[in-house]
Design a protein around this nucleic acid. Structure first.
Lengths: 144, 144
DNA sequence: ATCTATAGTTTACGTTTGTAGACTTATAAA
DNA sequence: TTTATAAGTCTACAAACGTAAACTATAGAT
């Protein structure tokens, strides 16, 4: 019953963060780390690891014990996908404003800011005066 | 059984988008619009409206029929909250990069870009060279 | 006054998620 | 060699979710 394509849940995401940081990890390591920041029982963590394997976000080295779990997707890619999904579910007209707000309250490194500035100045030349709202289907105003 | 504080699900979010756009709407209007972009049955939409009311994202005008539903939160605020939650669940060290990627593939208006540029140049003066990863709890490396 | 279409309410049902105990088995210790 | 600890698997269970049929009641049509 391996199901790919399913999204990670928020709890599963937390598990992935520690594995991403460690590169690869045993359940013991994951349990130890999670114990420091949550009150999840070892069983709960084992269940989440199994579900992540079923969703194909983790693979293991096949050891029968002290098995090593490794991500099949980089943290960077997972974050980009998630952000994309979030942004795509939002009104195209308003999303710029929401992103701006989000950035205002996020700590960015000098490097991030410089790259962002670069991208923005490139976008500026071709930027539209306004972006159309896409909350409604086309022709929703037609009489029927 | 009114439960506040619960997050909107993705289906509920779609319903909210049409109500946000219309300002307020009857179930008939919502059903008609959603019918143009999904294959959800009228029943399904009614259920989602009820759940949004229970989660206090919608209030109605109390009419016994042809009731008007109104959002209790603005689209802007909902979007900002959602983005915040998404960003806060991510590694602080990498999130700038992910946001940058997201922005690179999002259409922004001239106005959005100008405001963003303004905010970024303000942030630049105090920006750190790098942001620390916050995927792990403090002292996770201590022997125990 | 009766009927009909439909807005709103109830009930339903399989799947996913959060959460975790119970069980099985392998390795390290005695 | 026996045993205890714990890694991995199975089972569990309530709540949330996606999805929708059935039921109730009301306003408009005849």
């Amino acid at each position: 019953m391996i199901k790919e394509n399913k999204n990670m849940t928020t709890s599963e995401w937390e598990i992935m963060r520690v594995i991403w940081t460690l590169g690869e990890a045993t359940s013991r390591q994951i349990i130890r780390v999670m114990h420091l920041k949550t009150d999840w029982s070892p069983s709960t963590i084992k269940t989440l690891i199994t579900r992540l394997k079923n969703k194909s976000y983790l693979i293991d080295n096949g050891a029968v014990r002290d098995r090593l779990y490794k991500p099949t997707i980089t943290e960077h890619d997972a974050m980009t996908n998630t952000l994309h999904q979030t942004i795509n579910s939002m009104c195209a007209m308003c999303v710029g404003d929401a992103i701006t707000n989000a950035i205002a309250s996020t700590t960015l490194s000098r490097h991030d800011i410089l790259r962002l500035q670069d991208i923005l100045s490139q976008k500026l030349s071709t930027a539209p005066e306004a972006v159309a709202c896409n909350c409604m289907p086309n022709n929703w105003e037609d009489e029927q």
